[in-house]
Computed example of a mutant assay.
Amino acid sequence: MERSDAVSVHTEEAMVLGRGMRLLAGAMTVACVVLVGPSAPSSALFGRSLPADAVRDVVANRVMTWNLCNPCDESNVDRAAEIATYAPQVIGLQEACARDVRRIRSFLERLYGLVYHVEYGTVLRNWGRCGGAPWSPGAFGQAILSAAPMTDRVNVEYPDGGSEDRGYMAVTTMVGGRPVRVFNTHLAQRRQEAVRADQTGVLAAELARHDRAIVLGDFNAVPDAPELAPIWALATDTDAQCHPSPASSCEPTTDWNSKFDYVFLRGIVPLKHRVQPTPYSDHHLLYTDLDPTQNP
């Protein structure tokens, strides 16, 4: 074989090998995308390390509410890690895309061993909020995750959502070993007080039907706002220092130092609560531990 022919053969072999390596790398990339989802960073394969004081299993008497912030370009791996740190029995999410909730739930199980059921309270389909094809936008609204099965789901859209469709959802599930009705809602945006008043009237009418209930959500209103009066008449805040009075002491739950997020309790006694700021939303995590053995 002439030297030029040998060089040509070696060059062709190198090109074939190079193409093979690129195809292999491409296949592995596709496999990773299928495994962790396109919105997750490469670190999703390993998850995010939890703090040393994080709980390691679901806390049976703990409930949490969290507005995810949307549209916000946040990783569902990070969102799952925030939830896994506190591992509540029940989580109410607002401003939630169904696709993101599915991924959060998957990461909670695969990365942290926390298994949740999920129910959705979709109120609209919105491409700007949740992506998808322009002719088939993603589902947007509320969701509830529970370590125990959920039954009797209802999904109600308020007659007037204000500047954007809003609603509430409710399920029956177990918290602290006892059945309880759990509501999750997101009221109309700020500066729409009259709309929110109508919405709380709708929610309160359903809440009044239950002796034991938990209401989670972003109410877009401070505690002494008049539109929250129907809820205060039926339930108490998990924070014993928080009342519908300007003089009460209510811990802020947002980056702008307002309390908009609530865990309202009806027929249930709280043990302790925590407001935890997070870099992954403009709303803080709010969770509470309940005493299922006592009646108010």
Rank of each mutant, 00 (worst) to 15 (best):
R178L: 12
R190K: 15
G177Y: 03
Q199K: 10
G177Q: 05
V180A: 03
V222Y: 12
T185S: 09
T185L: 02
R196L: 08
G167T: 00
A170P: 03
Q199E: 06
R181D: 06
L216D: 03
R212Q: 01
L187P: 03
A205I: 08
V202M: 10
A197Q: 10
V182S: 02
L187E: 07
A208F: 06
V171D: 05
Q199D: 07
V215P: 12
T172F: 02
I214C: 01
E193R: 15
A170K: 13
A188W: 02
R190S: 14
T173L: 01
R209I: 14
H210L: 03
T172N: 00
P179A: 10
R190A: 14
G201F: 09
A205L: 10
T173R: 02
D211P: 13
Q199F: 07
D218L: 02
V171P: 05
A170L: 12
Y168F: 11
D218P: 07
E193D: 14
R212G: 06
R212C: 03
F219R: 11
G201R: 09
G176D: 03
A194C: 12
V202Y: 11
E206H: 13
R212M: 04
V171C: 02
A213M: 04
Q189T: 14
V182H: 01
V180F: 05
A204L: 00
V222D: 14
V171S: 00
T173C: 04
G176T: 01
Q189W: 15
H186Q: 09
R209K: 15
A170R: 11
T173V: 07
E193F: 13
R178S: 13
F183R: 01
V171I: 13
L216E: 05
R181I: 06
E206N: 13
R181W: 06
R191V: 14
M174D: 13
R196E: 09
V202F: 12
G176W: 00
R209W: 10
G177D: 05
H210R: 06
L216F: 02
F183C: 06
R209S: 12
D211G: 13
F183H: 06
M169L: 11
G167E: 04
A208K: 12
P179M: 04
L203W: 03
N220H: 05
T200F: 00
E193G: 15
R196Y: 08
A188P: 11
V180R: 00
F183Y: 09
E206T: 11
N184M: 04
R191C: 13
R212Y: 00
R209Q: 13
L216M: 08
V215L: 11
Q199Y: 10
T185D: 09
R196S: 13
V222P: 14
L203T: 03
D198M: 15
